[in-house]
Simulated assay, not measured.
Amino acid sequence: MKKNTGFIFYGAIIAFSLIFIFSAISLNENYYAGVVNQPLIITIGACMIGLAFFELYKRTFEKRHAISTAILCSISVIFLIVVFPSYNYTEAGEQLMNEYENEGHQVALEEVTTPSFVGNEQPTLFISRYYVHSVTIEDEDDSYFYFVDPSSGETLRLETFDE
């Protein structure tokens, strides 16, 4: 690989890695309420950036290194797609509402100040938090809080103590 091509290729890898980090963090915060471990996202992106800087520092630009770097970037994107949970925050709330509506109740989701919360256990290896939803049953005028597992959609009603 020519030196000029190598600089362009690894410069593109650095730009790709930065876009990867910022878009994955934005996706995690905006659609998944921050349930995916962010250090994982940053570590994957930092490894790609470090590899690109190392190749720029060496200035040998071997074709096999470029191919392995491209494969690593592709695998990183696929890995991150697999790591994100099955349900985003909105889908988990809709599933919770459907459970109550199937029982014949009128329900409404209320906004909570903390959309995700760390439980006693991690849902999976890479997902560290549970979604939190507040459900108001309009028929009974009762409110309940639920943990929803982002990966499986399982719900757990939390006990609240009213004074």
Rank of each mutant, 00 (worst) to 15 (best):
Q122P: 01
S76C: 10
L158V: 04
T5W: 10
I25S: 02
A33Y: 04
I21D: 01
E154T: 10
I44K: 01
V118R: 14
V148F: 04
R59Q: 15
Y10N: 02
M48A: 11
K3E: 13
T124F: 02
D149K: 01
G93N: 08
L96D: 02
F61N: 01
A46C: 09
I19S: 09
E159A: 09
M48T: 11
Y87D: 06
Y144L: 07
Y32P: 07
R59A: 12
E62R: 11
H105N: 13
E154P: 06
L56E: 10
T90F: 14
N102L: 08
H65V: 06
I21L: 07
Y57W: 15
E163M: 07
P150Y: 03
I81T: 14
L80A: 02
F84L: 08
E94F: 08
I13Q: 03
L18F: 12
E99C: 00
F20M: 02
E101G: 01
V148P: 03
L125R: 13
A70S: 15
P85C: 00
F16H: 01
E138M: 12
T113M: 12
N30P: 03
G50N: 11
E163R: 05
L40K: 03
T114L: 14
N120T: 09
E111A: 11
I42E: 07
L156S: 10
Y146I: 02
E111K: 14
I81F: 15
A24C: 13
H65Y: 15
L27E: 12
A15E: 07
P150F: 00
A24H: 13
Y131W: 13
Y130T: 07
V135P: 01
S152Q: 08
L18D: 04
Y31G: 11
F117C: 05
V82W: 15
I14S: 03
L56I: 11
D141Y: 12
I127M: 02
Y130N: 14
Y31I: 00
Y100T: 00
I71Q: 03
Y10F: 14
F9C: 05
N28Y: 06
S134L: 13
E29Y: 06
C47G: 11
T160A: 08
R59D: 12
